[in-house]
C-alpha cells in the first residue's frame, strides 16, 4: 500500500465520526446534544480557570437554576396536563385531531395520536403562552416517538416538529413587549409586524430545510 493511501485511510478512519451517515451508529454528529454540552462545559471550564472563576460553583448554581425552573414550571404543567386530560375524556381532543390531521399530514406524514398535542403546542406558542406550550410539546414528542415504534433517534416528523418550534410564530412577543414598555419605548408595538413577517419566513425556511435534509438522509 502506498504511503498516501495509508494516510488517507487513517484520516478517514479518524474523522469518520464526523460524517453524518444514517447507517453509522457511532457518528458523533448524531449525538449533537452531547457534543454541544461537552464543548460548552470543556471550553467553559478552561475559560473559567483562566479568568479565576470556580467552574464547579457555576455548574452547581446552574443546576440549582434547573431545580428552580422545574419548580416554577410545575404549576402550569400540572394545570395544563390536567385540563388536557379533561378535554381528552370529553372527546374534544379527538375532534381537534381529526380536524387538523389532513393539513398537518402534509408536513408530517402519518401523524395520528400526536396531532392534538402538536396543535396545542403550536397554538400555545402562537398566543405567547410559553409555559403552556412546554407540556404539550413534551406530550407531542412522546406520541411521535411512539409512532416511530420507540426509535431513539429523531424521525423526520420529530425534526419537522422541532423545526416548527424553532421558527417561533407568535401573535404577540409578550416578553419583548414587556421589556420595551418598561424601558419607555415611544411605540412598543411597532416591532409586532416585522416580528411576525420574519417568523413566517423562518417557518418557511424551517419547513424547506427539514424536507431537504429528510430527502438527503433517506
Amino acid at each position: 500500500m502506498r504511503r498516501t493511501d495509508i494516510k488517507e485511510n487513517v484520516s478517514r478512519e479518524t474523522f469518520s465520526f464526523l460524517f453524518v451517515n444514517s447507517g453509522a451508529h457511532r457518528c458523533i454528529a448524531c449525538y449533537m446534544m452531547s457534543l454541544i454540552i461537552t464543548v460548552l462545559f470543556a471550553v467553559g471550564c478552561l475559560l473559567c480557570i483562566v479568568n479565576g472563576i470556580s467552574p464547579l460553583d457555576e455548574l452547581i448554581s446552574g443546576a440549582d437554576g434547573a431545580v428552580k425552573l422545574c419548580a416554577s414550571l410545575a404549576g402550569s404543567y400540572l394545570i395544563w396536563m390536567g385540563l388536557m386530560n379533561v378535554a381528552k375524556r370529553a372527546g374534544l381532543v379527538e375532534k381537534l385531531a381529526r380536524l387538523i390531521r389532513k393539513p398537518l399530514g402534509l408536513l408530517m406524514p402519518g401523524v395520528s395520536g400526536a396531532a392534538a398535542p402538536i396543535t396545542m403546542n403550536l397554538a400555545a406558542n402562537f398566543f405567547g403562552l410559553g409555559n403552556a406550550a412546554t407540556p404539550f410539546g413534551i406530550d407531542a414528542m412522546r406520541e411521535l416517538k411512539r409512532e416511530a415504534h420507540g426509535s431513539e433517534s429523531a424521525t423526520a416528523n420529530i425534526c419537522m416538529f422541532l423545526a416548527l418550534n424553532a421558527s417561533a410564530i407568535e401573535l404577540l412577543p409578550t416578553n419583548v413587549l414587556a421589556i420595551r414598555f418598561s424601558l419607555g419605548a415611544a411605540d412598543a408595538y411597532s416591532i409586532v409586524l416585522p416580528t411576525l413577517i420574519s417568523s413566517i419566513f423562518a417557518a418557511v425556511a424551517a419547513i424547506i430545510a427539514s424536507k431537504a435534509f429528510a430527502s438527503i438522509i433517506k
Binding site: 449533537m32 413534551i138 416517538k145 431513539e152 433517534s153 429523531a154 425534526c159 427539514s210 429528510a214
Partner: peptide
Amino acid sequence: AGIKKTSYA
C-alpha cells in the same frame, strides 16, 4: 421523550 440522536434537528 428519550430521544438520544437529534439527527438534523
